[in-house]
């Protein structure tokens, strides 16, 4: 009986595994084939891998530059988002103030507004920012639409991350903070030297989530980044698919390369990620 239920379990799991792995397999096989074979659904390892890679990197769309742009945006977003959100989450839990629960709830509500609804106001705001001039310095030179800054800033403070950190801090022993205060540590030092080292798992989880969403972000960079040399990987991939006869072999190469950083980061931080998510839920 036990054997039978085990067998069923494995069959179901195998099917599920196949369904989730197959697209990746397809993608990787695609890198070695030319468009015609991909479109006709042949599953085989072809000999076109190097040719596809060559067309990808020698393409006018400048794929390497897009990789650099994406990396800069994703890394900076992750660093700033982690710093800011953890501070905010810490502040919400450790320091008591009157309206804090209310503010926190309003902030959570903001999670429910879809981005598409905020896009046009956000765009207007940044273009208005373009026109501001302080002395002889135009703001647009540093912060205007079309700078990487515009893509980074809106995703630096997210309600979800603040929520994640706050939940995690709930499980953090407050006595430690008290003890540190008595020992004469300043509030900044407590945060940096007592809290941060204990929250590595939460940071790892938050890093994966932020990096992934920033790396894959499509709509806002599409709208905000105007000049072609600032475009990110998803935008380039979308432009490649725009032909009446797209080169799928080349695109598959691009997609595989675009998937690698996320896969890599996930495998490196996998253990911490799971622990981080668990920690927050338990709290």
């Amino acid at each position: 009986m036990n054997k039978l239920s085990n067998a069923i379990k494995y069959v179901v799991l195998s099917i599920a595994a196949f369904v989730s792995i197959f697209p990746f397999l397809w993608m990787i096989m695609g890198t070695t084939n030319e468009t015609r074979d991909i479109v006709s659904g042949k599953i085989k390892i072809g000999g076109k891998f190097l040719i596809n890679m060559k067309t990808l990197f020698e393409n006018d769309l400048d794929f390497p530059k897009a990789l650099v742009n994406s990396a800069v945006i994703a890394v900076l977003t992750t660093v700033f988002a982690l710093l800011l959100s953890s501070m905010a989450g810490y502040g919400f839990e450790i320091f008591k103030s009157k309206g804090r629960e209310r503010i926190f709830n309003v902030m959570l509500l903001s999670m429910m507004v879809p981005f598409a609804a905020m896009m046009i106001p956000l765009y207007r705001m940044f273009t208005k920012l373009n026109q501001i001039q302080i002395g002889s310095v135009k703001l647009s030179t540093y912060f205007g639409i079309n700078s990487l800054f515009v893509v980074i800033v809106p995703s630096v403070a997210t309600a979800f991350l603040i929520f994640l950190f706050r939940q995690n801090i709930k499980a953090f022993p407050k006595d430690l903070v008290e003890a540190a205060r008595i020992d004469g540590l300043g509030e900044w030092e407590i945060f940096a030297r007592i809290y941060m080292p204990t929250a590595k798992n939460t940071y790892a989880a938050a890093a994966i989530i932020t990096f992934m969403s920033s790396w894959n972000n499509y709509l806002w960079p599409l709208v905000a980044l105007q000049s072609p040399e600032k475009r990110t990987v998803p935008l380039i991939l979308s432009a490649m698919g725009a032909s009446y006869t797209p080169d799928y072999g080349m695109m598959m190469c691009g997609i595989v390369i675009a998937t690698l950083p996320i896969a890599l980061i996930f495998f490196i931080l996998q253990k911490q990620f799971v622990a981080g998510m668990m920690g927050s839920v338990k709290g």
Partner: peptide, 13 residues
Amino acid sequence: TMSQDDIVQKLNT
């Protein structure tokens, strides 16, 4: 070079 959908999205915004 941009996809047609991307051009539409950017123009609209």
